[in-house]
């Protein structure tokens, strides 16, 4: 159960961010009108997750956790700063997103064109903070594990939003009861998709 690949598969299909934990639902519902934008946002989320989670992992391990400061000074070993982790994580995420935006704009205008508009949205996406918090809770042994978890979660999110957007594109042509149109049916479809994903539980 401890292999990197297991963590990856598990986080894509079983612990899927959207279907199992409802993370990132706001942007999930808002940006799923077309497959193309959905894909763009999905890639951006995966990318930011894959960067922020390992960084937060290191910060958690070497700065915040109980006894984490022992490597600096013996007498600091008893310090437990984990109550600060929320605020630190969110600051790191906001900072990294900002940084990524600048770096991408500088070095790859094409990529910036594709991802740029999504990046600011992402800083307050619960999937990103959720990724870091679950990482903290799961207590991974190495950075590599946390990276594989982050990548898997991101791809799982991407998969979910693209599948959902594809269904939504078709939905335009179907006959839905008036009061159910829009968000109502969107929730129900997500639920049904989630039920489908439950089938992966046996893996």
């Amino acid at each position: 159960m401890n292999g990197l690949f297991d963590i990856f598969v598990r986080s894509v299909f079983i612990d899927n961010m959207v279907f199992a934990y409802f993370l990132g639902m706001c942007s999930y519902l808002a940006v799923s009108k077309s497959v193309k934008t959905a894909f763009g946002l999905g890639v951006a989320v995966s990318f930011v997750l894959a960067v922020t989670v390992p960084v937060n992992y290191l910060i958690d391990k070497y700065l915040l956790k109980e006894g984490a400061l022992a490597w600096l000074n013996e007498s600091w070993g008893a310090l437990d700063l984990s109550f600060l982790s929320l605020i630190v994580f969110i600051a790191v995420i906001a900072g990294i997103v900002q940084l990524l935006e600048m770096v991408i704009e500088r070095f790859s205008p094409a990529l910036y064109q594709a991802l740029g508009i999504f990046l600011p949205l992402i800083a307050v996406n619960c999937a990103i903070l959720g990724g870091s918090l679950f990482m903290q809770e799961k207590n991974f042994p190495t950075v590599a594990h946390s990276f594989s978890y982050a990548l898997g979660s991101g791809l799982g999110w991407l998969l979910a939003i693209v599948a959902f957007a594809a269904i939504r594109e078709r939905l335009r042509y179907s006959d839905i009861p008036k009061p159910l149109q829009g968000n109502g049916i969107a929730y129900i479809i997500t639920g049904l998709l989630g039920l489908g994903f439950m089938a992966f539980l046996g893996i």
């Binding site: 279907f19 199992a20 934990y21 409802f22 159910l180 968000n183 109502g184 049916i185 969107a186 929730y187 129900i188 997500t190 639920g191 049904l192 998709l193 989630g194 039920l195 994903f197 439950m198």
Partner: peptide, 10 residues
């Protein structure tokens, strides 16, 4: 199971 929450909200 988690998906039921979504269907209920819908």
């Amino acid at each position: 199971l988690p998906p039921m929450a979504l269907i209920l909200v819908g």
